[in-house]
């Protein structure tokens, strides 16, 4: 799949924002007054900025409001509805913390739950697609949610929260790669099922029928590229996948864990840890798209 920068940044940045909002609403760190304003402002900048980035890959962004209507069937629509509901709930909690110096625990809990729900809906847009076997399994939402929560926990600067989440994230990320690498074969789609030709021609010959019937593309339908090949048959850049996986894990969890283990605390530790985590998340998300193979590639002899 084509790794569009707007979608990668949208999922990573809004994920970080919702991760931070999750902890702020639960009272980590316990902030009030102007401090609460600054913390919530940063979290809102990330969450809203990320959501705004998602509009850049739309063909008709002026009609984006229509995306709030089909929550009954579409994960993208559910994500839109839930994100806005989340931002409203978190806003209420922020107002209480800023002006009354004390949030409502029930409201905070509900807002945190909605933060997690928003990230879950984002991940389900991808995890629900049967056409991209690498995404189509339950570990995909786990990685999205843990990346978001891990990032939020690093920003709060509380190692007790961040360390277990980052260890869980490592396990989930490794699991997603391990499952993902086998997923296309397990899904059972081949050029033979895509064309129905092998099954149809088996046993129709009277001579020399030994061996399996194989189908291969002889001529593609067009000599240049098309929307389909640009969007769904993206094969450039996979040769560095192993190096990028290592790089992303180092940035995503190992560097932040080392930084948080330092005896020092405060912004001089948190900021580099968050920056490293964000870079790791962007690399991991780039791989999430670049390595994903869409079954339509079977009709083009490359995936």
């Amino acid at each position: 799949m084509h790794p569009a920068p707007s979608i990668i940044l949208f999922t990573v940045v809004s994920g970080l924002g919702f991760g931070l909002l999750f902890f702020l609403c639960l009272g980590f760190p316990a902030v009030s007054g102007w401090t609460a304003f600054v913390w919530f402002f940063a979290a809102y900048a990330l969450a809203v900025g990320g959501l705004a980035l998602s509009a850049f890959h739309l063909g008709q962004p002026r009609r984006a409001l229509r995306a709030f209507t089909q929550w009954r069937s579409s994960w993208l629509s559910r994500e839109a509805v839930l994100s806005v509901a989340t931002l409203c709930l978190c806003g209420l909690q922020a107002l209480l913390l800023i002006f009354r110096a004390d949030g409502h625990p029930l409201l905070g809990g509900l807002a945190a739950l909605f933060c997690l729900g928003s990230v879950f809906c984002t991940s389900m847009i991808y995890a629900s697609l049967r056409t991209v076997p690498r995404w189509n399994h339950p570990v995909t939402p786990l990685v999205f949610c843990l990346t978001s929560l891990g990032g939020g926990a690093i920003m709060t600067g509380v190692p007790v929260l961040a360390t277990p989440l980052l260890i869980l994230l490592t396990a989930a990320q490794l699991g997603a790669w391990w499952i993902g690498d086998r997923r296309f074969a397990d899904a059972g789609s081949t050029v033979e099922t895509a064309t129905g030709l092998a099954a149809a021609l088996v046993g129709t010959r009277t001579t020399a029928t030994a061996g399996a019937t194989r189908v291969r593309l002889l001529e593609p339908p067009h000599t240049g590229e098309s929307y389909l090949t640009r969007e769904m048959v993206f094969i450039v850049g996979r040769r560095h996948a192993t190096k990028l996986r290592i790089l992303s894990l180092v940035c995503l969890v190992i560097l932040p864990l080392c930084l948080l283990a330092l005896p020092a605390a405060g912004p001089e530790v948190t900021i580099p840890a968050v920056a490293a985590h964000a870079v790791g998340a962007i690399v991991s998300r780039w791989l999430f798209f670049a390595e994903a193979e869409h079954v339509v590639g079977l009709y083009y002899g490359r995936r």
Partner: peptide, 30 residues
């Protein structure tokens, strides 16, 4: 140099081959 267009119908061409038998060419509208 890089023409491309939107189409709702495209024709692929596949080669089907069993063992050493002569391959069959199948045009495949989609």
């Amino acid at each position: 140099p890089n023409p491309s267009g939107t189409f709702l119908n495209r024709i692929h061409t596949f080669e089907v081959k069993t063992g050493d038998a002569t391959a069959t060419v199948v045009h495949f509208p989609k």
